[in-house]
Design a binder for these strands. Structure first.
Lengths: 221, 221
DNA sequence: ACAAAAGTGTTGAGAGTACACCCATGC
DNA sequence: GCATGGGTGTACTCTCAACACTTTTGT
């Protein structure tokens, strides 16, 4: 066990969200060295008595107040030299925050925390640009091949809202009829009422049928 | 950096191969405590000056003598309590060995090393059963969605041999005409001669066209 | 009446699947 | 000549993509 110098291990979480019709990612401004003043993906050292996943959950909660959100391990970045402090291995996670539940708060070692449009990112500390690129690729893949899109919406949502989420993530228009046909064809949604107080024809609201409320692996184009 | 107790990090490699028409995985018999005498997935501690991927490459080479084989990071297993020695985080990799290049050798802390039929595994040390299950799932997924099947065959191979690889991995018959149509339709193979010295009609041999010799991401059912 | 988003079907193209016979070689 | 795997084409089904108009509500 002690024949080898032991590396430090961090859990870093790429947190996505949709704000003002744009796909955003949460970054913190580092308040400590190295890279003090640079923007970075939130994260921190894994504690001794803490599972990896729990560490990621904790980081997510500390930055956003979000719990029980979608959270998935992405990849582990462990090149020598990726951190000037020494050997640091980063286990990267990806999270999707429900906008309605987010309450930002800069954690102890961050001087600022902010949502950035993914088209307009600042330079990132360490190899965090690489981590972000990987996360975005995985996010789009997930949206394409699973029903993960639900997880940024409130429990009850309209098909229009869901379609908008997909259009934002893929940055292109989707045909309304094909989209609805496919989503409803999955048979995992149930009608749970209609919108109220809107200045146009109210949309039906849907929610996931019971049993499908965990993360799904159904194809969705 | 030193505010946190630092975990140990291992790179463990699930090495697959096809031997005698069966899908096999390489296991070592542990020669040291804990789990001395148990079978386990080969792996070892990541060295201070070694990239994660290099550590996995080294483990692969130490057990099998194989270099430049297909090697991919799978997942990082880091629950507390997964190793009785203390906090050990395992970065799991998956490898495909070209049978023709394998030369087994038990490394220093293993008393035996052997290919096991994946249908007939012994009990595994630590949480290695979980790692193996994950690796097998990923292997099948990779075969389904990429052209990775080539990487267990010699540079020059027949379509029959390739089909057999797919049938072994998926454990079912595949229609010969459909298979050939799809593989050739990808346009990534070139004819490079014919078999010799076989007791039946000699098959054409193919190899990957130049430029496709790295791992491909083309769909293949 | 008008603005705004909701809702609704059909058609054509391409991909995937099922299916059976002749061919070249070594023994 | 026979055993063994190599090699070939067609028809059906299903999924995906393209495409435009009517409906409901609030103002």
């Amino acid at each position: 066990m002690t024949d080898y110098t032991q590396p430090s291990v961090t859990a870093d979480v790429v947190i996505f969200n949709i704000v003002d019709g744009k796909l955003k990612v949460l970054l913190i401004k580092r308040g400590v060295k190295p890279f003090r003043g640079s923007w970075a993906i939130p994260g921190g050292f894994v504690r001794e008595d803490e599972d990896l996943f729990s560490a990621a959950e904790r980081e997510l909660y500390e930055e956003t107040g979000v719990e029980n959100s979608y959270l998935e391990q992405l990849y582990t970045f462990g090149d020598t030299g990726r951190d000037p402090r020494g050997r640091v291995i980063s286990v990267a996670y990806m999270a999707l925050a429900r906008n309605s539940e987010v309450e930002l708060k800069a954690s102890s070692d961050a001087s600022d925390v902010k949502w950035f449009d993914i088209e307009d990112l600042p330079d990132l500390a360490f190899d965090h640009k690489k981590i972000f690129d990987y996360a975005l690729k995985r996010l789009r893949w997930k949206f394409e091949y699973t029903c993960i899109g639900f997880s940024v919406l409130p429990k009850r949502f309209s098909l229009g809202a869901l379609q908008k989420v997909y259009e934002i993530v893929f940055d292109r228009k989707i045909d309304k009829r094909n989209f609805r046909k496919k989503v409803l064809g999955l048979g995992i949604l149930k009608e749970v009422g209609v919108e109220e107080g809107v200045a146009y024809r109210p949309a039906k609201l849907y929610s996931l049928k019971v049993g499908f409320d965990s993360i799904l692996r159904l194809s969705l184009g």
